[in-house]
Write a protein that binds this DNA or RNA. Structure first.
Length: 221
DNA sequence: GACCAGGCACATC
DNA sequence: GATGTGCATGGT
């Protein structure tokens, strides 16, 4: 029932928008950095910050680990919250070097659930950031929930409007086949439709999901 | 000038 | 557990 509905929604979105080619980023590490920098921030601003890191030739765990936090903050200034995000990047790198010799390849041997717990223990990495890293950088079968996901889900997916993060994650993970590529594309498509049509407190004229039954009134989300 | 954007930690009740 | 606040830039 729910799984058929989730697949129907996925197909409607894919037919309209096609492949989204997520995550934008050339390397595993660039994806991780982007996941932290994009917290509550427009992606265009994140790209400027990542561009600065690339220009400074600092986009590697080793080199970023050896960069002073103040210098790092200045480089990522366009991404906003630059002081706190510089510290968050440092926290991640400290964890990586303390536990895995600074080698992202060593993470491959770690069980997904354990890795999620460890990432969540890093100060500045919350559930969405951890899950984005797991899915988009490390190719683990974890569904990423964000503000767009929640809004679309509450409007169309027959889930209680007060469902929390874990409940939303469970909705997708327990009603879809565990498929990294499907999770990758589905989340990206939810962001796409959320940006273009399923906006806060706006009727979504022309939205590919327009005719589907709703859980709640549009005005509430 | 107001509002928003691919959150999170922390304080407080 | 739920709710409120600080963190900050750049586009509309």
């Amino acid at each position: 029932m729910l799984s058929e509905r989730l697949i129907e929604i996925y197909e409607l979105l894919f037919e309209r928008f096609g492949a989204q080619h997520w995550w934008p980023g050339e390397t595993e590490f660039e994806i991780i950095v982007g996941a932290i920098l994009t917290q509550n921030t427009n992606w265009d601003n994140v790209e400027k910050a990542i561009g600065n890191l690339k220009s400074a030739n600092l986009l590697s765990p080793e080199r970023l680990h050896n960069t002073k936090v103040l210098e790092l903050a200045e480089l990522i200034r366009p991404a906003g919250y630059f002081n706190i995000k510089a510290k968050r990047l440092k926290n991640f790198l400290d964890w990586l070097f303390d536990n895995y010799d600074g080698d992202l390849g060593e993470l491959e041997a770690v069980d997904t659930e354990q890795l999620r717990e460890e990432l969540l223990s890093v100060k500045g990495i919350g559930r969405e950031t951890a899950d984005s890293i797991l899915l988009y950088a490390l190719n683990r079968g974890v569904f990423v929930v964000d503000a767009y996901t929640a809004r679309v889900a509450f409007r169309h997916m027959l889930i209680e409007p007060d469902a929390d993060y874990e409940r939303l994650r469970e909705l997708f993970e327990s009603n879809l086949p565990e498929d990294v590529q499907l999770f990758n594309e589905y989340h990206a498509l939810l962001v796409r439709v959320g940006k273009e049509f399923c906006k806060p407190k706006a009727r979504c004229t022309g939205c590919p999901l327009e005719e589907l039954p709703r859980t709640v009134d549009i005005e509430d989300f």
